[in-house]
Simulated scan of single mutants.
Amino acid sequence: MQSEVFQFRAATTQESMAHAVRVLSGVAGVRDVTPSILRNEVSVQFNAELTSKQDLQAVLADAGYPIQTGSRGGCGGGGGGCSCS
C-alpha cells in the first residue's frame, strides 16, 4: 500500500472536498481517502499495482481540482513550523 497527500491549489469548501473524496474513492486500487479542510488536502492510500500518483493527480484535475506540485513548503507538513492546524 502506498500513501500520498494531495494539496489543492485553491481553497475548497466542504461540498467540493466531499466531491473530491467521492471521485478518488471511485478509482480502482484506492483503499482510503482522508480529507483535511484545514490543510486544504486529501491523504490517499492506494495499491500502486492498480493506480499511481500521476493517475490520481489526473483524476483530480479532470474533476476540476488541480493540486499543488513539488515541495509542500511550510504548511501541510505535519510537524513543521506551521500554526494553521
Rank of each mutant, 00 (worst) to 15 (best):
M1G: 14
M1S: 14
S3E: 13
S3T: 15
E4F: 12
E4S: 14
F6V: 01
F6I: 04
Q7K: 12
Q7N: 11
R9G: 08
R9Q: 14
A10V: 13
A10W: 10
A10P: 08
T12M: 10
T12Y: 02
Q14L: 15
S16H: 12
S16M: 13
M17P: 03
A20G: 03
A20K: 00
R22G: 06
V23T: 14
L24R: 01
S25T: 11
S25E: 07
G26N: 08
V27R: 01
V27I: 13
V27P: 01
V27W: 00
A28R: 10
A28Y: 06
A28N: 13
G29L: 05
G29Y: 02
V30G: 00
R31F: 06
R31Y: 10
R31K: 11
R31C: 05
D32T: 14
D32Y: 11
V33A: 02
V33F: 03
V33I: 12
T34F: 10
P35V: 02
S36M: 09
S36W: 07
S36E: 03
S36T: 11
I37W: 12
R39S: 03
N40M: 14
N40C: 08
N40T: 09
E41N: 15
E41D: 08
E41V: 04
V42R: 00
V42W: 00
S43G: 14
Q45S: 14
Q45C: 12
N47P: 04
N47C: 11
N47I: 08
E49A: 14
T51S: 04
K53V: 13
D55P: 04
L56T: 01
L56E: 00
L56C: 02
A58L: 12
V59Q: 07
L60A: 01
L60D: 01
A61H: 15
D62A: 15
G64N: 06
G64I: 09
G64Y: 09
P66E: 03
P66R: 04
P66S: 09
I67F: 06
Q68W: 05
Q68A: 09
Q68E: 07
T69K: 12
T69H: 12
T69A: 08
T69S: 11
S71W: 09
R72E: 05
R72H: 13
R72C: 02
G73M: 05
C75T: 06
G76K: 02
G76D: 01
G79A: 03
G79R: 08
G79K: 03
G80S: 14
G81D: 09
G81W: 09
S83V: 15
S83Y: 09
C84K: 12
C84Q: 13
C84Y: 08
C84F: 08
S85Y: 09
S85W: 08
